[in-house]
């Protein structure tokens, strides 16, 4: 029984990470109707940016120009209001405040990156065959993957976690602090996305722009800006997901995210592509199911059963567990 609960906790925390990525997919799907194959790589790339920021200046502050190698900034340790951002002199030592600063900065960068990707690369394909935009996201996928391989190399890099203390004992099971943190962040982001889409005027605008671009344009919504916003926010959520996934696994590497993205797809579809709640619940379901199968059936069955179940569930509920049935006006 103990292993059961341990696996449950384990699966739930991995699942929360799938759910976060699924949340980003849901965001883009609701904003532009596009299934974004590049989501995982966008998350990976922004996590790498965060990784380079999180290291002391001497290592790689400015990720592309390589200027950092020529600057002699080995001894500089930035502080905020006298509080240190780095622990001691180790490369991967960030204080909690430092982690927060890095998180905020990286999410901001990811936001801009998402907006630029939409504005410069996706926009020309909008309003055409839906597959065109999907192929463009495949192109972005290949581009970012190769760029990360080129800049950071294939070797996984350790990524700092904000909470590294002992595992919390819940009696029935133990959970590492990082997993708990990931669960909390997933829940908070899920609620935030739900509130954004259902309770704010901006979210309503984004939904309207996706549902009927021409009508919402007539209603005075700047549809182009809504689409850009959708991509930017999705990239930001994906960035948070990446920054939580990297320390939970063996670190960040260029090919880390594609496998996780597939589970993210599964989670998003399971929950219903247009439901924020569904994304996180679907993610946790996929994560728990996966760890149960690994524990009780055998690891080689995990993909077979996970994806087989997804097909089965879709056959019963064609728009996922929480998705609204598709209503099409003729």
């Amino acid at each position: 029984m103990e292993t059961f609960f341990a696996q449950l906790a384990n699966g739930a925390s991995t699942g929360a990470l799938y759910g976060l990525l699924a949340l980003a997919l849901v965001f883009i799907f609701r904003a532009t109707d596009v299934v974004n194959f590049a989501q995982g790589e966008m998350a990976m790339f922004s996590t790498y940016l965060g990784w380079s920021i999180s290291r002391p200046l001497s290592l790689s502050w400015i990720p592309f120009l390589g200027v950092d190698r020529h600057l002699n900034l080995l001894t500089w340790r930035p502080e905020v209001f006298g509080l240190p951002l780095y622990l001691g002199s180790e490369n991967d030592g960030l204080t909690r405040l430092g982690y927060l600063v890095v998180l905020v900065v990286t999410v901001a960068i990811a936001f801009v990156m998402g907006a630029l990707i939409e504005r410069l690369l996706i926009r020309p394909s909008e309003g055409k065959n839906l597959l065109n935009a999907v192929i463009v996201t495949l192109g972005i996928f290949a581009f970012l993957n190769s760029l990360a391989n080129f800049r950071y190399g294939p070797v996984p890099q350790t990524y700092p976690a904000p909470f590294r203390g002992d595992a919390v004992d819940f009696g029935l099971f133990k959970m590492s602090q990082h997993s708990l943190f990931a669960l909390v962040v997933a829940a908070v982001l899920m609620i935030a996305v739900y509130v954004f889409f259902q309770r704010t005027k901006l979210g309503l605008g984004v939904r309207a722009a996706a549902l009927n671009p021409s009508a919402s344009q007539l209603m005075g919504i700047n549809t182009g800006r809504m689409l850009t916003l959708g991509w930017a926010l999705a990239a930001a959520i994906g960035c948070v997901a990446g920054m939580l996934i990297a320390p939970a696994l063996s670190g960040i590497s260029p090919n880390l995210m594609f496998g996780i993205l597939l589970y993210g797809f599964a989670a998003a579809v399971l929950g219903g592509l247009d439901s924020a709640l569904g994304a996180v619940v679907g993610g946790i379901a996929v994560g728990v199911g996966q760890s149960m199968v690994v524990q009780y059936v055998g690891s080689q069955w995990s993909d077979i059963i996970a994806f087989g179940l997804i097909i089965a569930i879709l056959m019963v509920r064609p728009t996922g567990l929480f998705g609204a049935p598709a209503v099409k006006k003729v």
Binding site: V35, F307, P318, G320
Partner: peptide
């Protein structure tokens, strides 16, 4: 058959799941 019930991205993911199941099935002992 899934195509009769599913549309658009849902069908894409269902067929993707089919493609993902295939290689591990081959590897089974």
């Amino acid at each position: 058959i899934p195509a009769l019930r599913l549309a658009g991205p849902y069908l894409a993911i269902a067929t993707l799941a089919a493609a993902l199941i295939f290689p591990p099935l081959l590897k089974l002992d």
